[in-house]
Design a protein around this nucleic acid. Structure first.
Lengths: 253, 253
DNA sequence: CCTTATCGGTTCATTATGTGAACCTTCATT
DNA sequence: AATGAAGGTTCACATAATGAACCGATAAGG
């Protein structure tokens, strides 16, 4: 792997740690030599992607991404466009809604609007869940090019609950359903008692750039309600695709 | 220079270009070989820091910084904390106020609240002005460690108007005044007819992380008004330092 | 008070990685 | 058909990355 690749992976790793972390632990987590990890951290720090607490000597994510993100958002206002859509979906459904973005072969939660109900599902911004165990993941997989999908299915897949589907053949069936219907459903895939539904946000070339999804406690969702949530998620995702990239490609077919 | 350093500088460069740019031009601007530039771009693209338009083959900043920025801001809410302060200053003074952040040896404009007046100063988010020609730059230099300041003053300094101070000795005098008073003033340093004043935002260790500044058409600013703006900027910066890092260090002295 | 085990950080011989002149293909212009 | 400039690729060579061993500091345990 290229040195730059290692540095960026390391940056990702440090960003994913929820508190300042020491050199040795970072090196261990990244499976890099301590000297190598340090050199990369120093390089990243010189450009403010990482910062080191002078007192504790521990490392954390720096300020440079914020500056770059402003530039990116000024040109491609993904969040600025997407957040109102997610908010509206949240108000309409009164369930936890979240927006995920596909970046670096993974699906990252970039915005969450939490349900106003007492019994609700909590999703963390910044989290990154396995594609096969979530509704968002299925929605994404369904619209990914065949080869990317198969590459994913070829990996060993972990089960998170007794309900997690890990068999590639069974997953293919669910993915095909998802593609036909336009929305995915996951019951207890990642956490027991949670049902979620998701629809892909598609770019101008028809490839998914992310997903919008709704997660609710299973007790509130009967079949009729599930159909409602499905079409709400679908509508929100289509609206967002259209806002970002012009007419939704699915409507052109 | 390390390969990682080159990659990050290249990323910075691409981010600073206001439109999609081809490989050859990027290589030229970065003073890198075309093959090297491409390898770095590919590495950056693999992690979504850069993206390439499939149709035009041109490169632009990618989505990864947005994801990292959300994580950073969740932990260190610089903008979330700072923007209300800048807004309040703008409402109080009715002049254009902006927040700059010191990152990578440069001072970047990260937020602007524009004056409601017809005759007003416009400052662009994302811009990066020379330290010696702006009030913000002087405020920053005044509170930087001696060696960083001297390293900056040792460079050749460009004059932007006949009023731009470029003599290191004269600048030192103005910097010392600034440090003594706590705020800097720049008359016509960068653009004729503009007067601006700035105060540093200081972190817990007393080093500047950025500045808050006010820019106004000279015709509206007599000595009394200047004193008002000075103390308003100073108060805003102190409030922000306190909000971000606890008690303002200057008040402890 | 010495031993042991961490920690962050550094060194330097070895080696893998990055480099760039020259090359290829494509495409628009002359 | 010739030209030039684009994006992209190749490979002998040079440089920069690597990591085992090291240092000094700090903390816990006997």
């Amino acid at each position: 792997m290229s040195t730059v690749g290692k540095a960026l992976s390391l940056l990702n790793l440090v960003a994913s740690l929820s508190e300042d972390t020491g050199l040795s632990e970072i090196a261990r987590l990244a499976a890099l030599d301590k000297a190598t990890a340090r050199r990369l951290l120093v390089d990243l720090e010189a450009h403010d992607f990482i910062e080191q607490d002078k007192a504790t000597k521990r490392y954390r994510i720096g300020a440079a991404p914020v500056r770059l993100a402003r530039i990116r958002e000024a040109r491609f206002p993904f969040l600025r466009t997407a957040i109102p859509v997610v908010k509206a979906l949240n108000e309409e459904t009164e369930e936890t809604c979240h927006l995920s973005e596909f970046s670096g072969h993974e699906l990252w939660t970039v915005h969450v609007e939490t349900s106003p109900r007492a019994n609700r599902v909590i999703v963390d911004v910044g989290s990154c869940y396995p594609l096969h165990a979530t509704a968002s993941g299925l929605a994404l997989l369904a619209f990914l090019p065949e080869e990317s999908r198969e590459a994913f299915l070829a990996q060993p897949l972990k089960a998170f609950t007794p309900h997690t589907v890990t068999d590639p053949e069974a997953l293919r069936a669910r993915i095909n359903e998802t593609r036909a219907r336009g929305t995915s459903v996951s019951r207890n895939g990642l956490e027991p008692g949670v049902i979620s539904t998701a629809a892909p946000v598609l770019s101008a070339d028809g490839l998914p750039v992310g997903t919008i999804s709704i997660a609710a406690p299973e007790v509130r969702v009967d079949d009729a309600r599930l159909a409602e949530l499905n079409s709400a998620a679908q509508a929100a995702a289509s609206r967002l695709s259209a806002a970002l990239y012009g007419l939704d490609i699915r409507q052109k077919r």
